[in-house]
């Protein structure tokens, strides 16, 4: 039972990061129809910025976190402006190839800038974990979970209740009609991409101090994010949130009670089963394209 509770706790916390990774990706795909292959690199970028601010520059941990996320937003906006804006109206394959190119370039730049040796980031939290009975969790992870939850809720609120969110939803439903109604599509696109990128950078900046930071860390993160988006339904923020927690739960319990060797397979097995019965994913609002 103790082991079960520990697994559930681990899964909840892991699910928070997964959800954060997933919603950034699903937003961009849902609204822009762009498969963002740089998602994992924005995550890595966030982690390296966190490293740079906390370790060599010795900034305050929490200030560093805010700066890392803001820089992720800026980088995302730049990618959108430089690479995607000129490709408006191009077919999905062209954009996909450009984004794959950007992914490889960014990963190699990270390698060049920081070398392949993993970096670790100090954190201001107590070394001893929080212990409740026989289960325990580090303070750093609790902090990560709290911030991730706040960011997910914030994103939700932004889409639901702000003018920008309304414009995003309108663009999601039908970009041409939205444009005719006076929605500035280009601004919506750049805001969406910047927001999605910021969320990815936030995931990296939050997770960096818990794990270690290295140039290819984004590959696995991106793979999980894609899985979560497919599971939750392309373009669905609620789907990605719930999908993130489901994937974490499957992995954690699968590894704990079936076999840790097939930990990653458990999640994907679930995705296959769900897609068999709901080909658009759990929460997709309309048919998939591409």
């Amino acid at each position: 039972m103790d082991q079960f509770l520990q697994h559930i706790l681990n899964a909840l916390i892991l699910g928070g990061t997964y959800a954060l990774l997933g919603i950034g990706l699903t937003l961009i795909f849902g609204i822009m129809r762009v498969v963002n292959f740089t998602h994992g690199e924005l995550y890595t970028f966030g982690a390296y910025m966190m490293f740079m601010f906390v370790m060599p520059l010795q900034l305050n941990f929490f200030l560093a976190l805010i700066l890392a996320v803001l820089l992720g937003v800026v980088l995302g906006a730049m990618i959108e402006f430089i690479l995607l804006k000129p490709l408006r109206g191009a077919d999905i394959d062209t954009t996909m190839l450009i984004m794959i190119g950007a992914w490889i370039t960014m990963q190699n730049m990270e390698q060049f800038a920081w070398s392949g040796i993993a970096k670790s980031i100090d954190n201001p939290f107590p070394v001893d974990p929080l212990v409740i009975g026989t289960i325990s969790v580090s303070w750093n992870r609790i902090f990560m979970f709290a911030v991730a939850s706040a960011l997910i809720a914030g994103t939700y609120a932004l889409i639901r209740w702000t003018k920008l969110g309304k414009a995003m939803r309108a663009t999601f439903q039908d970009p041409e009609t939205a444009a005719l109604m006076g929605v500035r599509i280009n601004s919506v696109y750049i805001a969406t991409f910047a927001l999605g990128s910021g969320l990815a950078a936030a995931a990296g900046a939050l997770l960096g101090p818990i794990i270690v930071v290295y140039p290819t860390m984004g590959d696995l993160a991106a793979l999980k994010a894609f899985a979560i988006v497919i599971l939750g339904g392309l373009g669905s923020v609620a789907g990605a949130t719930i999908g993130g927690f489901i994937l974490a739960m499957m992995e954690e319990l699968g590894a704990g009670y079936i076999s840790s060797g097939y930990r990653d397979a458990m999640g994907f097995l679930l995705i296959i089963i769900i897609l068999l019965f709901r080909p658009t994913g759990l929460f997709a609002q309309k048919e998939r394209v591409g």
């Binding site: 103790d2 082991q3 520990q6 697994h7 681990n10 892991l14 997770l207 794990i211 270690v212 290819t216 860390m217 590959d219 696995l220 992995e251 954690e252 319990l253 590894a255 704990g256 076999s259 840790s260 060797g261 930990r263 990653d264």
Partner: peptide, 20 residues
């Protein structure tokens, strides 16, 4: 005897099992 993927960064499930 627990295993982990070479790229895995979250090993909490395996450690919980070892602990038990």
């Amino acid at each position: 005897v627990e295993t982990m993927d070479a790229k895995a960064t979250d090993l909490s499930a395996q450690i919980a099992k070892v602990k038990a």
